[in-house]
Design a protein around this nucleic acid. Structure first.
Length: 973
RNA sequence: GCCCAGAUGGCGGAAUUGGUAGACGCGCUAGACUCAAAAUCUGGUUCUCGCAAGGGAGUGCAGGUUCGAUUCCUGUUCUGGGCACCA
């Protein structure tokens, strides 16, 4: 009976088993077919499991992979796990479960969920970054980074041995060869550290004294630790970094050679933040020190009214006057508690502090007061800016706030009310620059600065070197040993350096990671091990290479294999990785290319961004009562229920108000409360409202039994509805009075009770329906809320499609008759649409096209194999199980996976006539049937003879007649 | 605050190059089948005036360019993502 009706459970089980048994998704590393590499962004196997938002991109890439296979490609489509990371360690801290254990559980769960959806991954290529077989190579690539430097002449990475050889023979601009040879090991290492691509230096971290640990930005909320609410300050610690800034220009250049969206490229360009400007040295009054500022506008140097330097600069202590010392120290302490983002985001409230020091303008000798302010960050430029209030809005506000007199150098272009950042004004009041157009003056000022030796042109990048160490346990250990503060690299032959097992996940002494607690691991005869571990992006910066050659024990990826698979042709993932992962992996690829390990320097040829599927949270309200308040029904806050002790409505978590009570006016008196329950949409006066069944809600979540659900009709408490009777509150006999919720669209998250689990949907409707529905929701790149209701429409469509082939009673009904012209037209129209839309990643409209096709074939009562067989193949990327079943029912013993995609024949869709829309003055008035080859003259004659057109012309002669062949007709009068 | 994106019926969305706005699906609604229900099938469904024929308005908001704008330009509002230790 399997063949009669659409039994998706049996069909999907059968084909998944068969594809598994025949290794149908195994991909060889060589083939006569052209190659195609489709990759999903590396997932972190979170403990929360998959919700319907996760597989969106996986389904899109799966469809594309299957499509490419039908088109005759050898398609690499792997999956694996970015398994190191903070959440597993956090879970270990709280529950004592070792991260390796919880990670494995999560992976098993993740895999089981993925398998149900029917993906075509080649699971023989699965990788896991937390396995020594994998992180051995992450460590090896780290050593390559450590043992390389960026050669400015060749603009590429070279082995550091070449640099050492150069130092030994010819020295550098800082030292002679003889001096180099006389340096101690530590001194040599200090110089080399300035060049290594992976290097160690001091940097600031979020330090929480109370917890004795370094915190991730995620763990800091409003300046205090998320756990416990302890103060968090900035603290300098020795850290590892990757010298990504050396690659800034090449990362910019590479963007021209990849197919990413313009906005994605724009975000990366802005992140890199290349700017051309000048560094200028200002003398400091009464000091030998210089104040070095970076500016992109040296033309405004005569308009400098004050300087602002980053509060954390060492210089602050040297220039602060004794009168200002206390204020400066207080301000510096305040800034230490602020995150970089807070420091830049705060614009309304201007903060800062005068240091008491003055810089001297080199051109006119004017004394310029030096301030510190949080909006200047030490990491960008020189950490000091020259402020020109007439030309910069923030400087202007700062000057106003501190009553600093403003110098006007642009005459009438500055009105004294707001700054004018123009470059097109003629400079006034500007010494040797007076009379020049500002944009021309930039070069003149730069020339002068360089001539006088007080400044030089400088290209700057906003991007900073990437912090590469974490004071954590669950990450790759560094293959580095320390001796008296000097690091040495372990030999590659000693890799992997295994992550030791620990029993405790708490921090080590001095904020070091948990590894510092294992003395026997840290102390070795060769030196002390580095105790921090690598960050999450270490393993994910090169994983796309390991998939090509996942079991290679001799190298991370064989060169011949990476030459075959080459770049990832299609990379699918979210925009949230725009500047993190994508930049890091692009940098690593460039380094590996420079060092000759691979033959391409951009990892991802085409990037497809997937939108986020948001959850719809249901909200009830909690009344925020004040002391003398009465509840919204005009009664006191106490509800009396006969036979029960009176309860007060002043225990907010217990009373949930129906949304009908909340209006715009009184909204401030209510707080939102997320409800874990599905709702029913009801139409009321042309408005959709969400009605919740309180009894079901309570039965599903027994903890809610003690809640009071308040509606205008009655309230629900302890499983009963009670009336709002003036005299006495009594049980009423009603079928659920309406309890309304309002809905909020937001990120899917367990805490908001708005997650939807794909397993339930696959169980109820089948994987094929689920896959199609995810695509049908909308464009894959766009974020949209999930609505489970619509899935039934897609399920109905698949059943309808099934019934084209099968009669419930009579079974397979397909005939071998010759198809009619109409039937061929429907098929070929669909082939064209499906192919074009998949090629442009418009996956949602493909589903519509298939629906239209099935509707039309149904109208034509088409049961012909010549039509239905190609249709099954068109369906295969989206609903592979059903397609396989139909294909085999049509008599095929070969696999639908390797069928040939139907070829579009334009002869079948030719039309002899075209219905033209006819507008008068741009407004559509009628349509007109014309021969497809009608020319302008014929069209004009037919149009003017048309009754409706004549009516609108009112006897006048049209001024203009517009005819766009095959498109439209417009008569202008 | 800065960077990026988005806004179209009751809902998700379609309109690919500036050319018939609302395909397809959900929901709603009327009907067929049924003792009834489910399932299935058929019709209707942007708003608005009108018995109808036929008008008018309409793609967040305000302008502009054009014979013609959801599409291009300027400004603006709101929503989402990112902002360097979540991944």
């Amino acid at each position: 009976m399997l063949l009669m009706e659409y039994n998706f459970n049996a069909i999907e089980k059968k084909w998944q088993q068969q594809w598994n048994d025949t290794k149908a998704y195994q991909v060889p590393n060589n083939s006569s077919k052209p190659k195609y590499y489709v990759l999903d962004m590396f997932p972190y196997p979170s403990g929360a499991g998959l919700h319907v938002g996760h597989p969106l991109g996986y389904i899109a890439s799966d469809i594309f992979s299957r499509y490419k296979r039908l088109k005759g490609y050898n398609v690499l489509h792997p999956m694996g796990y970015d398994a190191f990371g903070l959440p597993a360690e956090q879970y270990a801290l709280e529950h004592g479960v070792h991260p390796a254990v919880s990670t494995e559980q999560n992976i098993n769960n993740f895999r089981a969920q993925l398998d149900k959806i029917g993906f075509c991954y080649d699971w023989d290529r699965e990788v896991n970054t937390s396995k020594p077989e994998y992180y051995k190579w992450t460590q090896k690539i780290f050593l390559d980074l450590y043992n390389s430097y960026f050669c400015n002449t060749q603009q590429k990475a070279r082995p550091i041995a070449e640099l050492i050889a150069k130092y030994e023979t010819s020295g550098s601009k800082h030292f002679t060869a003889a001096e180099w040879q006389a340096f101690s090991v530590a001194e040599k290492e200090e110089w080399l550290m300035k060049r290594r691509l992976a290097f160690s230096a001091y940097g600031e971290v979020n330090w929480c004294e109370a917890l004795g640990t370094v915190l991730a930005n995620d763990e800091v909320v409003n300046g205090v630790s998320e756990r416990g609410g302890h103060p968090v300050i900035k603290k300098k610690m020795r850290q590892w970094y990757l010298r990504i800034t050396a690659y800034a220009d090449r990362l910019l250049e590479g963007l021209n050679r990849v197919d990413f969206s313009d906005s994605m490229k724009e975000m990366q360009r802005n992140w890199i933040g290349r700017s051309e400007g000048a560094e200028i040295d200002f003398a400091i009054k009464g000091s030998d020190q210089k104040l070095k500022v970076y500016t992109t506008r040296p033309d405004t140097i005569f308009g400098v009214d004050f300087m602002v330097i980053a509060p954390e600069l060492e210089l602050v202590n040297q220039i602060k006057s004794s009168e200002q010392a206390e204020a400066v120290d207080n301000y510096v302490a305040y800034v230490k508690s602020r995150s970089d983002r807070e420091r830049q985001a705060e614009v309304k409230q201007i903060t800062g502090c005068f240091t008491g020091g003055y810089a001297i303008n080199p051109f006119n000798g004017v004394e310029i007061p030096i301030y510190i302010a949080e909006y200047v960050l030490a990491g960008y430029g020189t950490g000091a800016i020259m402020a020109v209030p007439c030309g910069d809005e923030r400087d202007f506000k700062f000057a106003q706030h501190f009553n600093i007199p403003i110098t006007n150098i642009i005459g009438k272009h500055f009105n004294g009310q707001e700054a004018n950042p123009t470059k097109d004004a003629v400079l006034e009041n500007s010494g040797f620059l007076t009379g020049l157009l500002m944009k021309d003056a930039i070069a003149v000022a730069n020339d002068k600065l360089e001539e006088l030796g007080i400044g030089k042109r400088k290209v700057n990048y906003k991007m900073r070197d990437a912090g590469f160490s974490r004071q954590r346990y669950w990450g790759e250990p560094f293959p580095i040993l320390w001796n008296d503060g000097v690091p040495t690299a372990m030999p590659e032959t000693a890799l992997p350096l295994n992550l030791p097992h620990v029993e405790k996940y708490g921090p080590g002494p001095e904020g070091e990671g948990p590894l510092a607690n294992i003395a026997e691991w840290v102390n070795t005869p060769e030196g002390k091990r580095e105790t921090s571990t690598m960050p999450g992006y270490a393993g994910s910066s090169w994983y796309f290479l390991r998939y090509m050659d996942p079991h290679n024990e001799a190298e991370f990826c064989n060169r011949a294999v990476s030459d075959y698979w080459n770049q990832v042709d299609l990379y699918v993932g979210g925009t949230e990785h725009a500047v993190g992962h994508l930049l890091y992996s692009r940098m690593w690829t460039k380094v590996l290319y420079d060092l000759g390990y691979i033959g391409f320097d951009e990892p991802f040829k085409k990037l497809l961004n997937q939108g986020m599927i948001q959850g719809v949270s249901q909200v009830a309200y909690i009344r925020k009562f004040s002391k003398d308040d009465i509840n919204p029904l005009g009664r006191s806050n106490t509800v009396i229920i006969p036979g029960l002790p009176p309860f007060s409505l002043e225990e907010p978590e217990l009373q949930l108000y129906s949304a009908e009570f909340v209006t715009e006016d009184n909204r401030e008196y209510y707080a939102e409360y997320k409800i874990p329950i599905d709702v029913v949409n009801v139409n009321m006066q042309n408005q959709t409202r969400n009605k919740m069944d309180v009894e079901i809600a309570v039965s599903k979540y027994p903890a809610r039994l003690n809640c009071v659900f308040i509606t205008s009709e009655a309230f629900f408490y302890k499983g009963l509805w009670w009336s709002w009777n003036e005299e006495k509150t009594e049980v009423i006999n009603v079928s659920s009075p309406d309890f309304f919720t309002s809905s909020v669209v937001e990120k899917m998250s367990k805490s908001k009770f708005n997650t939807v689990n794909p397993d339930d949907l696959v169980h109820k409707f089948g994987a094929d329906t689920f896959r199609m529905y995810e695509m049908f929701l909308g464009p894959v790149e766009v974020s949209k809320p999930w609505d489970t209701k619509g899935i039934e429409g897609v399920h109905r469509f698949l059943k309808k499609l099934w019934r084209l082939y099968f009669d419930e009673v009579k079974g397979l009904q397909v005939t071998q008759d010759e198809p009619t012209a109409d039937e061929l037209k429907v098929l070929h129209k669909t082939i064209k649409k499906v192919e074009e839309d998949i090629e442009r990643f418009s996956f949602n409209t493909v589903v519509s096209a298939l629906m239209v096709c099935v509707n039309e074939l149904n109208d034509l009562k088409c049961r012909k194999a010549a039509i239905l067989e190609p249709l099954a193949i068109l369906l295969a990327p989206y609903a592979p199980h059903m397609a396989a079943e139909l294909y085999s029912a049509l008599g095929h013993t070969d696999s639908v996976l390797d069928a040939t995609f139907p070829v579009f024949n334009p002869a079948h869709v030719l039309e002899s006539t075209k219905e033209y829309p006819v507008s008068v003055n741009g407004k559509l008035r009628t349509t007109l049937m014309l021969p497809a080859d009608a020319d302008q003259a014929a069209a004009e004659a037919a149009t003017l003879a048309n009754e409706v057109v004549q009516k609108w012309l009112e006897g006048k002669t049209p001024k203009k007649f517009i005819f766009v062949k095959g498109r439209m007709i417009n008569v202008v009068m």
